[in-house]
């Protein structure tokens, strides 16, 4: 029985995977078409227009938008992860006043999307004269409810407190302990969070939609939307740009997939 079941399972998961891959595949196939031709056939095969599309994409301000997206996402991710890990560690390692209040608050903010305050945030950024810079797109990620909750859960479940205790006995300072012992110890959790935050900020749409007004701060999702004349949307070029834009995410997820799945398993299952 097992002999029949095993291949069947593989066929099944292959089918599911194909369904997952299909639009992704279409994205790549469509990027090889000329826009006009795309509507005349079913673009399931590859055409020969990829280079022209790439030329259109890179001939525009794409690289700048790409650079902006990278900058915004990297900076957001690094600081968000660090801040989250710090607060997560504090909540696990110390008993202090308002600890449970803070915990509840984090859980609550995890579910209340920050974008709700976007009107107030916009006015705040205006008062601080930060509009027209990339900072508004970064600052909003710094205190992320999900990140804090995630790190708290992960550290609680996978950091042996004895290690911290013994470091204290050895006279290591708390900050030193945090960076040298705690962080390496919860690496899968950190990698998972890095991937998620990077993904979310890379794909972020609403906040840049409000704050990006000129070419110098444009991020990819906004850029793609304005690519091509409003009256003659260059569909193929847009899709090509998006395919190129997915590359960093793809790389990150492939590189981090082992840690990511390990992290998700530990953080979400044991927690």
């Amino acid at each position: 029985m097992n002999k029949i079941r095993k291949p069947l399972l593989y066929i099944m998961i292959s089918l599911v995977s194909l369904a997952s891959l299909f639009p992704f595949y279409m994205m790549i196939a469509m990027s090889t078409f000329k826009t006009e031709k795309m509507f005349q056939t079913i673009p399931l095969y590859f055409s020969n227009y990829l280079l022209n599309n790439l030329k259109t994409v890179f001939g525009s301000n794409f690289l700048r938008a790409y650079g902006n997206s990278l900058l915004v996402s990297c900076v957001s991710t690094v600081f968000c992860t660090l801040i989250s890990a710090m607060v997560g560690f504090a909540l696990v390692a110390y008993r202090f006043r308002f600890r449970s209040v803070l915990k509840k608050l984090i859980m609550l903010t995890m579910m209340v999307p920050v974008q709700l305050g976007i009107v107030g945030y916009m006015i705040e950024m205006r008062t601080l004269h930060l509009t027209g810079t990339r900072l508004p797109m970064i600052l909003i990620w710094l205190a992320n409810g999900f990140g804090a909750y995630w790190m708290m859960q992960y550290i609680e479940s996978s950091l042996p407190m004895e290690m911290v205790e013994s470091a204290r006995v050895d006279g290591s300072g708390e900050l030193n302990t945090f960076f040298k012992i705690v962080l390496p110890c919860v690496k899968p959790g950190i990698v998972t969070l890095i991937l998620l935050i990077f993904l979310w900020s890379w794909n972020s749409y609403l906040v840049p939609l409000v704050f990006v007004n000129d070419n110098t701060t444009m991020t990819i999702p906004i850029f793609i939307k304005s690519l091509g004349n409003a009256y003659m949307t260059d569909y193929a070029a847009q899709i090509t740009g998006l395919a190129v834009a997915t590359v960093p995410l793809l790389l990150l997820f492939i590189l981090g997939s082992r840690n990511f799945i390990q992290g998700l398993t530990a953080g979400a299952v044991k927690g």
Binding site: M122, I123, M125, R126, H129, T131, G132, L209, V210, F211, N213, D214, N215, K225, S226, N229, A230, Y231
Partner: peptide, 22 residues
């Protein structure tokens, strides 16, 4: 010349005014 999608145009101007950007 900066290209702004028609469907976003007025919104963008308004946001720029309200957010004090250029």
């Amino acid at each position: 010349v900066v290209n702004v999608a028609y469907s976003d145009y007025f919104t963008k101007i308004q946001q720029a005014v309200a957010s004090g950007s250029e």
